[in-house]
Design a protein around this nucleic acid. Structure first.
Lengths: 243, 243
DNA sequence: TAGTGGTCTAGACCACAGC
DNA sequence: CTGTGGTCTAGACCACTAG
């Protein structure tokens, strides 16, 4: 089951087919909604039997990269940032689900080189980024302070986006082809700036979520989210689920 | 790819084979290390072709329930509580990896009905439990206060276990057949008891991890872990990985 | 070396959903 | 109706590894 180890050419045919299709999707060549070639076509292209193609495509479907339907064929799936496994809440949905009014305020917005970045800073050169600091409110009460870098080399469209009324998170979900993400989660005391923004006392417990999101080798965005500790928590679930 | 939906009889043969093998593992009938029948044997048992058996077993291997090796055959995998996806650190390994000395102290140990339990308390009747409160130290500095219930209906062996020198976490890993887990993660202020145990000031940020672990329908253990916020954080990673 | 899983074939029938 | 994926067969050869 380890045919496509990182930096390792697939040795078997179905792994090669999978890798090549995956590459087209991750590169953005085949965008979400794109209709993939049918099994019959791929079978002819690779000069192999349909079972081999099927194994590759079934694997892609299992990992959620493509959707398969009879008659409708195989299409590139919409990226779902929020996995069932680690549910980092969609803050707006979360707030509205509680019957409260969601509010958004952009506090800062500028283009700059990255700074104060913890995750993924290991030797990688990250180019210019658009930096947005924003506040998310529930019934006018601030619950989340977010610092976000969007790296313009990876997402050139972010240069022209308007984040004065729309948060960068949802915008990214609609403009980014596919992502992987890494999180660091910690309990930290509120610093002066955070305390003022979230209207808590200095040193109050906050849930810090640092998230780095990338596609292939390219870092897309780094977010640093400070949740009011008394307002939010995360849930995560895992176990021997289906492959 | 949704053949084995919960509470839904598998409709295809490979799904049925998978489900039946899975049931034997989850029930504890086939314990970790058990050598499963070969594909050839299963092929004969189910009266189908080897490809069909292979699909079922490959699926089990993909989800990590079994290990497959040529010549050595297929064996039930050791449960790995610590998924690559959500890495709740093995506190002892974590501490020793930093070159510090791991310490363990059992503070309380008694049999009682469950109380103060948040996760999984939705209507479920949980029987008698062994309750262990313990402290985990790095170089004699307390970093984690853990309250743990082990439900004796599910793990009868826990009645006789000795938790004076061995923490219940690792013990469970060696005695539990297979698990699923659910977590709640939050940043909370240290209460009086926690502050005293962890030697932090009252209200200092702590990372609270509540974990419920179960097998099938049976709750195995509930753990409530308070990490010193300045000493530990969690990492999580996910994305379109292999299926 | 012998037995195991890993892979692959060249067919086949079926269920489903869009046309 | 037609084309699609889902499943299954009855073989085959190969790679790996424990004995």
């Amino acid at each position: 089951m380890h045919d496509h180890a990182p930096d390792d050419r697939p040795t078997t045919l179905h792994a090669r087919i999978r890798a090549e299709v995956e590459a087209r999707i991750l590169s953005g060549d085949w965008k979400p909604g794109f209709r993939l070639p049918t099994e019959t076509v791929l079978m002819a292209q690779y000069g192999c039997s349909r079972m081999t193609v099927n194994k590759a495509m079934a694997s892609l479907a299992a990992s959620g990269l493509v959707m398969r339907n009879r008659r409708a064929g195989t299409t590139v799936a919409r990226p779902r940032m929020h996995s069932a496994i680690l549910n980092i809440p969609d803050i707006r949905a979360e707030i509205e689900a509680r019957g409260e009014t969601y509010g958004y305020r952009s506090l800062m917005d500028e283009v700059r080189p990255p700074c104060c970045v913890h995750l993924g800073a290991e030797g990688h050169h990250l180019g210019q980024s658009r930096f947005i600091r924003s506040l998310h409110l529930a019934d006018d009460l601030p619950v989340l302070l977010e610092d976000r870098h969007i790296f313009l080399d990876a997402v050139t469209e972010a240069m022209a986006a308007d984040f004065r009324s729309e948060p960068p998170g949802p915008w990214l979900l609609g403009h980014v082809v596919w992502t992987e993400a890494e999180h660091r989660i910690a309990a930290v005391p509120a610093d002066a700036m955070t305390a003022r923004a979230l209207e808590v006392s200095l040193g109050a417990p906050c849930l810090l979520v640092e998230r780095r999101t990338w596609r292939g080798e390219e870092t897309i965005t780094i977010a640093r989210q400070m949740f009011r500790g008394d307002a939010f928590d995360l849930t995560a679930r895992f176990g021997p689920q289906a492959g």
